[in-house]
Design a binder for these strands. Sequence first.
DNA 1: CAAAGTTGTTTAATCGATTAAACGGTATAG
DNA 2: CTATACCGTTTAATCGATTAAACAACTTTG
Lengths: 342, 342
Amino acid sequence: MKKKVSLKDIAAKVGVSTALVSYVLNNKKTDRIGKEIAGRIKIAAEELNYRANQIAKSLKTNKTFTIGLIVADISNPFFSALARIIEEEAAKKNYTVIFGSSEEQSEKSFKLINALLDRQVDGFIIAPAENTESNVNYLIQHDVPFVLIDRYFPLIDTNWVTLDNYKTALTAVEYLLAGGNKRPCIITYNTTLNNLRERKTGYENALQKNNIQFEKDRCKEILFDSNIKSSVEKAIDELLSLPVPIDSILFASNILAFHGLKYIHSKGIKIPGDLSIITFDEMEASDLFYAPLTYLEQPLLELGRLSTKILLENIDKKKDPVQIKLDATLVIRKSTLPVIVQ
Amino acid sequence: MKKKVSLKDIAAKVGVSTALVSYVLNNKKTDRIGKEIAGRIKIAAEELNYRANQIAKSLKTNKTFTIGLIVADISNPFFSALARIIEEEAAKKNYTVIFGSSEEQSEKSFKLINALLDRQVDGFIIAPAENTESNVNYLIQHDVPFVLIDRYFPLIDTNWVTLDNYKTALTAVEYLLAGGNKRPCIITYNTTLNNLRERKTGYENALQKNNIQFEKDRCKEILFDSNIKSSVEKAIDELLSLPVPIDSILFASNILAFHGLKYIHSKGIKIPGDLSIITFDEMEASDLFYAPLTYLEQPLLELGRLSTKILLENIDKKKDPVQIKLDATLVIRKSTLPVIVQ
DNA sequence: CAAAGTTGTTTAATCGATTAAACGGTATAG
DNA sequence: CTATACCGTTTAATCGATTAAACAACTTTG
């Protein structure tokens, strides 16, 4: 790679010190600097097509204008859309985002955090994987600014922005019940992650509020690290073979819904006739299905923007933790057309 | 953020110079260094949890172990999957990838290139947008290592890795013809980008080889910056209202296919009964459609790995341009079940 | 035993910026 | 007419590493 133009080159060309060039190009001490020479410096910089070396700048200022984003699974459209929003939002403030995907693994998450710290990121936005409390505490101990997104740890007092998962699940199930369904089921992950646990609690409480007995058999939990597709298929088989037939399913994520829907369809079950379905997260793919899914749309833009805003504020100056729960939108489509009560 | 441990801190703790610490931790001059003191340095580094400041290292070595990846549209699963592969491949060699999306705009592309150059990336992998020949020439002039991916400019002799788009389209159309279709259409973009032009040429030549007259009305070109959805719908309306009914469509990209399929479905047209369909790029979404699409699968893994490999080799040492065309796989599903010739 | 070679470590320059402090020169004040 | 203030610019230290060269202190060698 060709050698780049440095402050020194400009200084030499104009015949001044590098300090002066730096002041001029950064608009510092403007009141003190001679207009004529400032002009010549600017012209020279232009002519040489000077571009400051950010590495050198970072070394001196101890700031890289880079933030680390660690998502749990970049292949999930939810996270890739979020990543894109965060990237755009950060770019507006001149920050670059470096991505990493923890693949829901705590070891990988820790490695990533360290790799990004090595690169001197100014802070992090993290969708924490299960059992990564230690990672979070590590960041707190080292005074590294960060914001958790999508998930958080109730016992750790730090910045986070998530969906109000409890309320969202509750709303969804009540909507199913209002539509005439009597036996809603849930397919979620078996995890300690609070966002998913809250979805389950929301499901349970919606039943309770409506005087419906919670049946363990109607609540299926998929292991994160299993083969998702076959686990979902097994779960659905079990649901369908219950003595008292079920009438509706809430999927706790788009991935679960995708596999579930394919399987349900392959079994010739009609939606919403035989089964009503709601899923968390957008499912554009189901636009091609004969019954596009009713879903719980997360406020991605707000999630991304708020988390970025909070992080950048914390980078500038340490602040008290901010904790935000946002509301989802229930987008009603064909998979939950009301069942006519006979 | 807390101050980090530097070489100086280790040197002070052990009572030696920073030079020695640097040599020990980088395993340089190992034959000259005292074993005992080397041990003490390593232990001290461990105790202080030392992590080298990559910024300082980069400034000195003029190498950041960072590559810039500029895709044309990160929301397209084709590019996001590719990005992920490149990221993984680069990580194996200790490189970090910084992403950017040009959104198919040449100005944005140029801005991105400069922003990444400011950050001293060691090289680029770029899926160039239309009319970005100047950007590419700029990189050549400045001796910046790079590899083009997915698209290239025939007149610029540089590294690139793409699909053999001509051959792929030709194969697809011949497959349609072999299945009994007589009047295949193509819906592509109106662009000068060679990858898409070659798809069109492949379509044309397949017809020619089979003694079928090329009909302008059966070839629809969508403007990149138009509303893709409505443009595709209009194109399909026009195709369907041709005096001589069409029997099959080749979509030049997954995005086009997605919108097209939704619209075709909404009009009650049966696939493959009324219309056979093939698309470029994987279309997982169509798994939920009653007739999953036959598609041309790009060798993403190879594309990503080869481009990364070529780039890293060029970063190490300037080499002669390498130009590679890869083959696609025709994945046959339900949207092209052969039409029975009466 | 002096010259030459080894060994283990330090010195100091360097990468490309930033920035407090210093420095001459001119203008203003007392 | 000296003292002080102000102006425009330079000096030099610094960020945290790397690395060629220098340097003592020994050990060999002829």
